[in-house]
Design a protein around this nucleic acid. Structure first.
Lengths: 338, 338
DNA sequence: GCTCCACTCTGCATCGTTGCAATAGAATTC
DNA sequence: GAATTCTATTGCAACGATGCAGAGTGGAGC
C-alpha cells in the first residue's frame, strides 16, 4: 500500500537515490547497464514519482486552475474544453473548479489557489468577484480574467466586445423590421457587469437609428438558465401592450427557454417573434428552430488566455496588464428567419 | 514575488516557526498575546500556507480527481456538478479532468494521478479503458468506477441497470403500439460496453413480448453526439422498408440530433415517430417536443461514488469491491406523447 | 608512471511544512 | 522553599524529491 519511493528503487537496483532520479528524469550521463537495472527496478516496483515532492522542490506544478461559475452551463463547459486543449499544447494540465457563484469560493480559489503553490496560475471567469476582492489578492501566481470586464484591475483580461456584439444582434433584429424588441437578461446590480454591457449595446443600436427604447421591454433575470428565459418570456407575452415582435436574450440558455415558452403558447418563430441568443452553444445549433446567436470565438478566447498566462509564467511579457479582445460573429439561423 | 513562508512570519512576529504553524493550524495552546502577534504578521505579509509542502508532510491532499471523457457533454457536466457538491460535504475538493476519450490520457490519469500523491482518490468514468489496463494499475489511492461495467475489476463500481433501463424504454414504445422501433447508438466493439447493455435491454423488451427484432433497425454510431444522432436518423428515414415508427436513442444528445432531423424532414413527433432518449439532460426538458428519457439519478450516482471513495480513504469499509446500483426512472414527455 | 580528462555515480543540503518530544518558565501544591 | 504540575513555546527530524558540487573510476596522452 505504501507508495514506492526513489529510495526503494535505489535499494533494489543497488544504486544511489540520486542515480535513480537521474534515470527517471533523463538527466546526466548514465551507463546503459545502470540505466537498464534502474528501469527494471522501476518497472518491478511500479514506481511513479511523487509529484507533490517533485513540485515542491522544483517550485512549479504544471497545473493551471480554471475557475468557472457553473460547469453545467454549456458555454463554460465548451470554453473549458478549449482551455484544456490549448493548455496541453504548452505542457500544462488544467484543473477545473466550479464556484457555483459563491463569492467565498471564488475568493478562496484565487487567493489561495496560486499562492498555495498548488497551481502555477489561474484563469478566472468571475461571477461575483469585485474589483476590491481582486485588489486584495496577494497571491504570487499570475491570473487572467475571462469575460467580465472589471475596470482597472491589475490583471490581464480576455473578452469580446460585449457592447458591440449586443448592438449587432439588436441591429439585426431592427433590420428585419422589428419594432418592439425585448431584451432578456439584464442585471442592473453589482455583479451583472456583462449584462449591463449588453443592455448598453441594445440601447445603442436603437439610438443609432434614432429609435426610443421601451424600458418595460428590458427584463431582468436572476440567473441565465433556461428556466429564467422561459419565465421571462411568459411575462413578456402578457405585456400590457401585447407581446414583443423580437427578443434578444443575453445568452443561449435564456433564448432556448424563451423559445420553449413561445412554442408552447403557439407563437410562431420567427414570424411572430424573432429570437436571438448569445454564446453559440451546441444546443442552439440543433434546436428547432435553430438559434440565431452571437458566436464568440471560444477557441480564440481560450488561446489568448492560455498564451498570456503561459507567457507570464515563463517570465516573458512582464509588461502591464492588457485587455485582449477575441472576435465574435453574428450567426444568423432560423430563429430570425436565416 | 517570492511567496512568504512560515519562516518569514516567524521572524516578523519574533517567534519560532513551530509556533506560527501552531497558530495557523489551531494546534496546541498559544497565549492570546502571541497568537495576536502572529496573526498580525500573517496578515501583514499576506501569508498562505504552501499546500504542496503541507500535503507532502501530511500525506494527503484533500483532492479527488474526477476523470470524464468529455466535459461539454451535458451528462458529464451535470454529473460533475453533483460530484463536486457531494465531495465538498466531505471536505474534499474535486479536480475535473477530461480525457477526450484518449486511451493514453485515461491510463495516465488513473495510473499516475493517485500514485503520484497529487490526488487522494480517483473517480473514473472510463470510455476506453480495458480490464487489463485496470489490472495493471499499481497506484495507491482508491478508485471508483462510474458508468461502464468492467467485469470483475477489483474496484468499486457505480452504475444504473442499463439493461433494465433500456428494456423499460423500449417497452414503453412497444406499449404505445409501435412496431418498428429503431435503436440508435449501438457500439458493437470493445469499448462500447454500455451501448451493448442497452442493446441487450432493447432486445429483451422485444423478446418478452415474443417479438422479433429487425437488426437493420439497430444503428451504430461512433460517438454519442447530436451530429451522430442526426446522421443516424437521416439514414433511418431512408430505410428500404420505410422509416421506423419509433426510435430509442442511447443518450439524449443522439435523440436531440434525431429530433432535429425528423422536424427538418417534416416528420411529426410523436405521431409519425416517437423518440426516447437516455440521461435526462436539461436540454431535453426544454426541447420542443420535450424528450421522453431514462433519467438516472445523478445525485445518487455522485453520492454513492463519493461516499464509497471517502469511506475507503478513511480506512472504513476495507471490504471487497462492490457494485453499487443507482436508481433510474422513465420520464415520459412529449416526444412519446406524454 | 604520472597527469589529466571524461564519464559515472554519489552525498549533502534544501524545498516549506508538520509530528514528536522536550524545554523553559510560570503557577500550584505541600 | 522544594517538588510538582501545567502552559507556552521550541528544536529536530522527516515527508520524497532535485540542484549542486564532488568523488571515484578508467582510459588517453606524454
Amino acid at each position: 500500500m505504501a507508495a514506492t519511493r526513489l529510495r526503494d528503487v535505489a535499494e533494489r537496483a543497488g544504486v544511489s537515490i540520486r542515480t535513480v532520479s537521474n534515470v527517471v528524469n533523463g538527466y546526466a550521463q548514465v551507463s546503459d547497464e545502470t540505466r537498464q537495472r534502474v528501469e527494471q527496478a522501476v518497472a518491478e516496483l511500479g514506481y511513479h514519482p511523487n509529484l507533490l515532492a517533485r513540485n515542491l522542490k522544483r517550485g512549479r506544478t504544471g497545473l493551471i486552475a480554471l475557475v468557472v461559475p457553473e460547469l453545467d452551463v454549456p458555454y463554460f463547459s465548451e470554453l473549458a474544453r478549449a482551455v484544456v486543449a490549448k493548455a496541453r499544447l504548452h505542457g500544462y494540465t488544467v484543473v477545473i473548479d466550479q464556484t457555483d457563484g459563491e463569492p467565498d469560493r471564488e475568493r478562496e480559489l484565487i487567493m489561495r489557489g496560486a499562492s498555495a503553490a498548488l497551481f502555477d496560475g489561474v484563469i478566472l471567469s468571475p461571477l461575483v468577484l469585485s474589483q476590491a476582492d481582486l485588489a486584495r489578492r496577494d497571491a504570487a501566481g499570475p491570473l487572467v480574467l475571462l469575460g467580465e470586464r472589471i475596470a482597472a484591475s491589475p490583471y490581464d483580461h480576455v473578452a469580446i466586445d460585449n457592447v458591440a456584439a449586443a448592438s449587432d444582434a439588436t441591429e439585426h433584429l431592427l433590420a428585419l423590421g422589428r419594432t418592439r424588441i425585448a431584451a432578456v437578461g439584464d442585471q442592473p446590480y453589482d455583479t451583472g457587469e456583462t449584462a449591463q454591457l449588453r443592455t448598453r449595446g441594445y440601447r445603442e443600436a436603437h439610438a443609432a437609428l434614432g429609435l426610443r427604447v421601451d424600458d418595460s421591454l428590458i427584463v431582468s433575470t436572476h440567473k441565465f438558465h433556461r428556466s429564467d428565459g422561459a419565465a421571462a418570456m411568459a411575462d413578456l407575452l402578457d405585456h400590457p401592450d401585447g407581446p414583443p415582435d423580437a427578443v434578444f436574450c443575453y445568452n443561449d440558455l435564456l433564448a432556448l427557454g424563451a423559445i420553449r415558452t413561445l412554442l408552447t403558447r403557439g407563437v410562431r418563430i420567427p414570424d411572430d417573434v424573432a429570437v436571438v441568443g448569445f454564446d453559440d452553444i451546441e444546443a442552439g445549433r440543433y434546436n428547432t428552430p435553430t438559434l440565431t446567436t452571437i458566436s464568440p470565438d471560444k477557441t480564440m478566447i481560450a488561446q489568448l488566455a492560455v498564451d498570456r498566462l503561459v507567457s507570464r509564467l515563463d517570465g516573458r511579457s512582464p509588461g502591464e496588464p492588457t485587455e485582449l479582445w477575441a472576435p465574435y460573429r453574428l450567426e444568423i439561423r432560423e430563429s430570425t428567419g436565416g
